[in-house]
């Protein structure tokens, strides 16, 4: 609006620069993202894969790929549901502690009563794992927790266990390791975002509550949490959107097979398998479309919270 005020009727003659400046973005987007996306959706209605050296298809099969996605396999379960369930479960295992701890830390750091020293140091340290290459982090955990790795050595030396424990062969420990990595990678980031949210709340509200004799719990539930809600929901849903795309950590930790018994196979690992040697563009397309729908639903919540603010 302010543009019109400043540039007046001249703005018309500058319009072409607007188009010119946004042109590279849209050309690149159309070729490298939009067209591939359309092709992905198109593929999902075709039988199109590689079987050894022969390429099967593309043959139009309608909804057959989608039907296949929702059909039980020879092991008696629907892979899509199982892997989607795994993904949500693995996300939850990491995200619950992540949000609880981050909320706690955000309150500690913003508390004038506690007046925590060395905040910059603590923030620097807890945010660091977020920037670490996830595949390297996962490989590191694999090496550290392997049967001949230092964690097993330490536990045996301490007498906690008699002989090396196969952390990567048991569902509980594999899932816990994935959750631990996700927790470590994201709790610092969440802390910083929630902290900024709390700092955005009018300080005088906290002061008057204190003068009224409210205790810390009352302040948290009556002032901090309600006013932080939009940001909290934003951070939560973006975490969900990130969670549904979980790939690097379980892929590298389990070498792409989601050991044991596919219990740590995520949705994107499933998609990735279709894009391996079989190049099953049809099924991969169908999985992608579902991924798109799930993300779209979650994103509308994000936009609602942004607009409310």
């Amino acid at each position: 609006m302010s543009v019109k005020k400043v540039s007046g009727n001249k703005s018309v003659s500058y319009a072409r620069y607007g188009y010119l400046f946004i042109l590279p973005f849209f050309v690149v987007y159309a070729i490298f993202t939009l067209y591939p996306q359309m092709l992905t959706i198109y593929n999902s209605f075709f039988e199109y894969y590689r079987d050894g050296l022969t390429i099967v298809g593309p043959n139009f099969v309608g909804m057959k790929n989608y039907v296949a996605l929702f059909t039980k396999n020879s092991s008696g379960y629907i892979p899509l549901f199982k892997f989607l369930g795994n993904t949500v479960w693995l996300w939850l295992l990491g995200a619950v502690p992540q949000f609880v701890i981050a909320m706690m830390l955000a309150i500690f750091f913003t508390s004038t009563r506690l007046n925590i020293r060395g905040q910059q140091f603590f923030k620097t340290v807890i945010y660091m794992p977020n920037l670490i290459m996830a595949s390297a982090f996962s490989m590191l955990f694999f090496a550290l927790f392997s049967q001949v790795g230092p964690i097993n050595q330490l536990l045996v030396e301490m007498g906690v266990i008699d002989k090396a424990f196969n952390f990567l062969g048991v569902r509980v420990t594999v899932q816990s390791l994935i959750a631990l990595m996700n927790f470590l990678m994201w709790f610092g980031n969440t802390t910083i975002l929630l902290m900024a949210g709390i700092q955005g709340i009018d300080e005088s509200l906290f002061e008057s509550a204190r003068l009224d004799g409210s205790n810390a719990t009352q302040v948290f539930f009556n002032i901090t949490m309600p006013l932080l809600m939009p940001i909290f929901i934003y951070v939560l849903i973006t975490s969900m959107i990130g969670g549904i795309q979980m790939f690097d950590v379980p892929q590298v930790l389990t070498n792409g097979i989601g050991t044991p018994n596919n219990t740590s196979m995520t949705l994107i690992m499933y998609l990735n398998n279709f894009l391996g040697t079989s190049k099953n563009y049809g099924m991969a397309g169908a999985v992608s479309v579902l991924l798109f729908i799930i993300t779209a639903i979650l994103s509308t919540f994000v936009f609602k919270t942004i607009n409310k603010k």
């Binding site: 939009l34 591939p36 593929n43 397309g285 993300t295």
Partner: peptide, 14 residues
Amino acid sequence: MIPAQVSAVGFIQL
């Protein structure tokens, strides 16, 4: 918010 993975299938095919 559209994940990069959604365009991956078409991108790899191309």
